[in-house]
Nucleic acid binder design. Structure first.
Lengths: 180, 180
DNA sequence: CCAACCATGTAAGACGTTACATGATTGT
DNA sequence: ACAATCATGTAACGTCTTACATGGTTGG
């Protein structure tokens, strides 16, 4: 089987929510999928084009003045089918976590612990902001999309993000204590 | 400042441990850095070459029969300095987690929960094996490298891996319960 | 007045994997 | 016999980011 391009399916999936333009897809990615998937405009726009070429989506051009024409994309039934096939296909990639923080820590003996502690504290702040953002998004979903069929699944991925961020914060604090 | 290539520094760093061949670097990556960094041979061998060209390492060719010549690489003082500079330079990349599992879960409403539960269970097993591997490595370090200056830092990154894997397992179990 | 938001898109290049090529030795 | 381990390397390809190009509207 040809290699699956998961980002293509991420975009296909977002078209099934109320995201219908490249811009909206990017927004959603940055706000709600950011803790487990990322995509740049450089990938989104070309992918939307191929999605149409493959008959998985259709475009509707909406003229605007002052701004570039808005292009709204909608899944075709073939597109919906492709999404379901991808969803039910077996997991291929083991989730992967990539961390410059841990990489630098691993080689920590070449550096003063005081410096290492500094970037652990920096990271701790980043984590704190992350967690705050998750809680805000959670509130948004609970108040505005409670009824949506998607909400249940979105809250589950958020729950994941919250738990991981909390665990990371504890590890940071304990590691800082250990090194001081 | 030119963009930093962290994988280059990962290799540079590993040369400062007792990993001196491309093969050993790959082993170490797969065993001990696997939960926060990954590199393939296709990157390792060319990078080792450029490291020598840049004067950050030297090679020593050791003829072997039956096998290709073994090439042992050693950091130069310029290489050690480069490693320290990189270590003390500010964090650039926010750690990133990429997960096909969560991506598929996010679009869960297009699929039967029974199928979703199946891949959560599959993932739970993967996590269990991961955790077991971490515990084995921890024992190895505690028994064989306790005295090494590196051990302290290695155990800290391992601790991170263990905590995250445990948290993920709990999330998996709770999510399965929730969906059943 | 300036920043942020809206809105699309491309080209160049960085980063990383996979498949291929080669082949002896050691353990089961 | 067969798989795994040791050991190096390249070419093709896939994936993804960055920088650039364009420019009006809205809110502080």
């Amino acid at each position: 089987m040809a290699k699956l391009n998961h980002s293509k399916y991420a975009i296909l999936g977002l078209l099934s929510t109320s995201c219908n333009t490249g811009y909206q897809i990017k927004q959603m990615m940055d706000n709600s999928l950011n803790h487990f998937w990322k995509i740049s405009y450089g990938q989104i726009y070309p992918t939307l084009k191929t999605l149409v070429e493959e008959g998985l989506a259709i475009v509707q051009v909406i003229p605007q003045d002052g701004k570039p024409d808005k292009k709204e994309y909608y899944l075709t039934s073939k597109g919906e089918e492709a999404l379901r096939v991808w969803l039910s296909s077996p997991l291929e990639e083991i989730p992967f976590y990539k961390s410059e923080v841990l990489l630098k820590l691993f080689f920590g003996r070449h550096q003063d612990d005081t410096k290492t502690i500094l970037y652990l504290k920096e990271y701790l702040e980043v984590l704190h902001e992350k967690l705050t953002t998750y809680l805000e998004i959670e509130n948004l979903i609970r108040t505005h999309s409670q009824d949506k069929a998607d909400a249940k699944y979105w809250l589950i991925t958020l729950d994941y993000g919250k738990r991981i961020a909390s665990t990371e914060m504890e590890w940071c604090k304990d590691t800082i204590k250990l090194m001081e």
